[in-house]
Amino acid sequence: MMPKIIPNISVDCVVFGFDANTKSLNVLLLDRYLESEENHEVLVNDYVLTGYHTLENETIDDTATRVLRELTGLDNLYKKQFKVFGDPNRLMNEKDVIWAKSENFNERTITIAYYFLVKTHEVDIENNQHKPKWFPVNDLPELGFDHKTIINEAYTDLKAKSLYQPIIFELLPDKFTIKELQDVYECILGVEIDNRNFRRKLLTKKYLIELDEKQVGVSKKPSQLFMFSKDVYQKIYKESYLISI
């Protein structure tokens, strides 16, 4: 027997992905589209976050993990539960009411919001049955429900956490250059960072391990590669700012 959903409790997931080619922080969204049965009039045509109702036999964390796995095929990624959204009017816009009726949603649904950090190339969009799309976090399309608010609050939390927790490394390959690390910081924080000061400060961090390797397959002079040591970080730091701007 399939477990029943809890009709007024859902989980919405903000999947952030860093694109190293475009140097942009992106959000994974789904197309929300609905036509009338009578004359095929377009009733709803916008984008939403991925969200599911929680099942009776699940914890909230279980639901979030299930959402991510079904959307991306990925597991064991950084995730952060950051807020509960329970405004009684959060599903009451005209398009949202139409959509809620078509999907038999409870109009008084409370959602627990999470965000995840992935590398965009790890998500196979081409062969994904849900047909998700990446959008730059600063250039989002029209969004349904209160999902713009959810994304904005997730982004605010991400910017704050990136200054005192090593979550930024979740968006980088295992081996990276100092410039690639700087690119991610600049992208997330929306600021320009002085190259020399950034390099000087980062090279004093014991959790950055310099490798006996350099970039390969680049046209310019290859840069030194580094890796992040989570073990070293946890031994040395309890809560320490990674950079100062």
Results as ranks from 00 to 15, higher is better:
Met1Ser: 15
Met2Tyr: 15
Met2Val: 10
Pro3Asp: 07
Ile5Cys: 11
Asn8Ile: 06
Ile9Phe: 04
Val14Asn: 00
Val14Phe: 01
Phe16Ser: 01
Phe18Lys: 01
Asp19Met: 02
Thr22Trp: 11
Ser24Tyr: 03
Val27Trp: 02
Leu30Met: 12
Asp31Lys: 14
Leu34Tyr: 15
Glu35Met: 09
Glu37Ser: 13
Glu37Asp: 10
Glu37His: 09
Glu38Gln: 07
His40Asn: 09
His40Thr: 11
Glu41Gln: 12
Leu43Tyr: 02
Asp46Pro: 10
Tyr47Cys: 04
Thr50Trp: 13
Glu56Pro: 09
Asp61His: 14
Ala64Tyr: 05
Thr65Ser: 15
Thr65Gly: 13
Thr65Gln: 13
Thr65Arg: 13
Glu70Ile: 08
Asn76Gln: 15
Tyr78Thr: 03
Lys80Pro: 02
Gln81Asp: 12
Gln81Cys: 04
Val84Asn: 06
Val84Gln: 13
Phe85Gly: 02
Phe85Lys: 07
Gly86Val: 01
Pro88Cys: 06
Arg90Met: 15
Val97Met: 09
Ile98Gly: 01
Ile98Ser: 01
Trp99Lys: 00
Ala100Asn: 09
Lys101Val: 14
Ser102Val: 15
Ser102Leu: 09
Ser102Gln: 14
Asn104Gly: 02
Phe105Gln: 02
Thr109Arg: 01
Ile110His: 07
Ile110Cys: 05
Thr111Arg: 15
Thr111Ala: 05
Ile112Trp: 00
Ala113Lys: 03
Tyr114Pro: 08
Phe116Ile: 15
Leu117His: 00
Leu117Lys: 02
Leu117Pro: 03
Val118Asn: 10
Thr120Cys: 03
Thr120Asp: 09
His121Pro: 09
His121Ala: 15
Gln129Asp: 11
Lys131His: 12
Lys133Leu: 08
Trp134Lys: 02
Val137Phe: 00
Phe145Gly: 00
Asp146Met: 10
Asp146Leu: 11
His147Glu: 06
Thr149Trp: 11
Thr149Ala: 03
Asn152Lys: 12
Asn152Ser: 14
Asn152Asp: 09
Ala154Glu: 06
Asp157Asn: 14
Ala160Cys: 13
Ala160Tyr: 14
Ala160Val: 15
Lys161Tyr: 05
Ser162Thr: 07
Ser162His: 10
Tyr164Gln: 14
Tyr164Lys: 12
Tyr164Trp: 09
Gln165Met: 14
Gln165Ile: 04
Glu170Tyr: 03
Glu170Thr: 06
Pro173Thr: 01
Pro173Lys: 04
Lys175Phe: 04
Lys175Ile: 14
Phe176Trp: 03
Phe176Thr: 01
Ile178Tyr: 07
Ile178Glu: 02
Lys179His: 10
Glu180Asn: 12
Leu181Gln: 05
Gln182Ile: 07
Val184Trp: 06
Val184Cys: 06
Val184Ser: 05
Ile188His: 02
Leu189Trp: 08
Gly190Arg: 08
Ile193Gln: 06
Arg196Ser: 07
Asn197Arg: 08
Phe198Pro: 02
Phe198Ser: 00
Leu203His: 04
Thr204His: 13
Lys205Asp: 12
Leu208Asp: 03
Glu210Leu: 09
Leu211Asp: 07
Asp212Lys: 07
Asp212Gly: 13
Glu213Phe: 14
Lys214Ile: 06
Lys214Thr: 08
Gly217Thr: 00
Ser219Met: 12
Gln224Gly: 06
Gln224Tyr: 04
Phe226Asn: 01
Ser229Pro: 12
Asp231Arg: 11
Asp231Val: 03
Asp231His: 15
Val232Asp: 00
Val232Trp: 10
Gln234Tyr: 12
Ile236Trp: 11
Ile236Gln: 10
Ile236Phe: 02
Tyr241Gln: 11
Tyr241Ile: 07
Leu242Thr: 02
Ile245Leu: 08
